[in-house]
Amino acid sequence: MTETTGSARSATSAREEILRRVRRALADVPRGERSEVDRDYLAVHGARSAGENIDLLAENLAEYRAHVHRSGEAEIAVTVARLLAERGSRSAAVPGGLPEDWLTRVPPEVTLIHDSPDLTAQRLDAVHSVISGCALAIAETGTIVLDGGPGQGRRLLTLVPDHHICVVRVPEQIVGSVPQAFAVGALVPTRPQTWIAGPSATSDIELDRVEGVHGPRILDVVLLGAA
């Protein structure tokens, strides 16, 4: 660390000065100190079978007011069509890479809008629904992770429409716990990510949770392969 005079100091950049302040503040830290963090916490809470993980995910999602549905591969198109009909949806956004066979039973009165660069937030504001897949889901916390991969699309697709149908392939896309979601290879950190645990909610009025503010107010989660 080099000494600087008052006048030289004012000329140095904020970056240099902050770094110098940090180093000065840490004068008590031995040079070359390397400390290891003890990770004595659990990798997962309790032992569960794949089926039990599916049940736990469903239970936790439902507790935070997501609507959970189970569907086999053969019925997925019917399930998606039914959910659109139940919500009275007239239009649905479709991210690139979403399996086409999920959409084969969508009735003609529902307009499917495939993602394209000119699908702006303003246009999406008039779209009722969005159908997406996910990157993974966490059973213990009832959380779904989207990372912009195939069938998930740009972040705004699953944000602006008021109704989100999210399909989770089970058991293969389920992990048990938060630490398991961070296991090497589960997620790519640098992809834009959205973690979702139930529909939009707020605790801002008297610290009491109510569902539904800006994000999709209706979250339909389809557990595909769990019929």
Binding site: T141, P192, Q193, A197, G215
Partner: peptide, 12 residues
Amino acid sequence: AERMNPYTTMWT
């Protein structure tokens, strides 16, 4: 006091 908050965004 939630197991997970409704939304988390990560960007790089």
